[in-house]
Computed example of a mutant assay.
Amino acid sequence: MKSEKIHQNDFIVNSWEELCEEVYRDSWKPHLTRYRSDYAFRGLSDAGYELKNSFLRNCGQRPELEYHLLRNFRKYSISKDAQLTASFWRSLVMAQHHGLPTRLLDWTYSPFIAMHFATANTEKFDLDGVIWKVDFVKVNRLVSEPLNHLLREERCNAFTIEMLEESIMSLSDFDKKLNKEQVIFFEPPSIDQRIVNQYAFFSVMTQPTSIMDEWLVDHPELYRRIIIPKELKWEVRDKLDQANITERVLFPGLDGLATWLKRHYKPATNDLAGE
């Protein structure tokens, strides 16, 4: 579903150089004398798409179904490593990773991986793409107790599974203890090479039917939307391929290889044989 909202923080890039400059804007940390970004990135092939989680897209306004989805996933799943589903947080990550509808949203620390997901679908090359750039450090600092103190104690910017397991035992516990619409960003365990290669982490909101766009619009200081015009998509795609930011790397295995080859050898024009 597409968002009807007009985002005041939209920035349209007009070149590859401008795109690279924009994703790294504000990453310089004078006190460290290093470039260290505080941003989470999410690339979408259509700038009109909402930040709507897969549970809401699949189940609509039926929040009671979330518990049953995860309960049955844990009941029927067979894992070689029991630790991967030992807690509801780990089960939630595993479920998202394997395509079960959940309230999680996928993000990456890498702006180039976000560029990949904004330009991977050639069927959407007639539409502008978008990269959501969200200051996850500031977002996490807004969270209420009992989670806020964990960040201070650990002196870190993103939650880990282990930190969340200390205070939150279930999704209903998460919703009740935070008590209002809130967002956190957390890092998953390294389940497999795909998680590692995509430099992935997740956002999660209280309430499974919450839409992150609506929360961000109320916090304009926390985000920016970088619009990639449709006319620029092929250039971005080709340069990412040359930089080896492809499905072959991000989705290790034959499926990723086949997807990369399919796009790599697709002509950029519509003059395809047999049409």
Rank of each mutant, 00 (worst) to 15 (best):
T269R: 09
A243N: 14
E235S: 11
R25H: 12
L222A: 04
H219N: 13
M205S: 14
G256I: 02
L250I: 00
H98A: 06
E64T: 02
R57L: 07
R90Q: 08
G43D: 03
E221A: 08
K176W: 08
I161E: 04
Y109A: 12
P220D: 02
S144N: 15
Q198A: 06
I78S: 13
S91Y: 05
G253D: 00
L178G: 00
M169A: 09
W89R: 05
K266D: 14
K5L: 06
L216Y: 06
E221C: 04
Y76K: 09
Y109R: 15
L84M: 12
D38P: 11
A82N: 12
K266Y: 13
L105I: 02
A268R: 15
D10Y: 11
W260V: 02
F136L: 11
I245D: 08
F117A: 07
G43M: 04
S87R: 10
I131P: 01
W234G: 07
G274E: 09
S167L: 05
P252R: 05
W16P: 08
F185D: 03
P30N: 06
W215M: 00
M94N: 07
L250G: 01
V130D: 03
F201N: 00
A114P: 00
D128V: 06
G60P: 02
Q96D: 08
V143Y: 00
M115E: 09
W28H: 10
V183F: 08
I226K: 05
N179D: 13
S87K: 09
T259G: 09
T108S: 14
T269I: 06
T269W: 06
Q83G: 14
L105D: 00
I113Q: 10
H97A: 04
D46H: 13
R25I: 12
D128P: 04
L92T: 01
K262R: 12
N9G: 01
T122M: 14
D26S: 13
T259C: 08
P30L: 05
G256V: 03
E165D: 14
F186S: 01
H98K: 12
W215Q: 00
G256D: 06
Q207I: 04
E181Y: 12
A40Q: 03
D10T: 09
A268H: 15
E165T: 06
Y109G: 11
K262D: 10
L171Q: 14
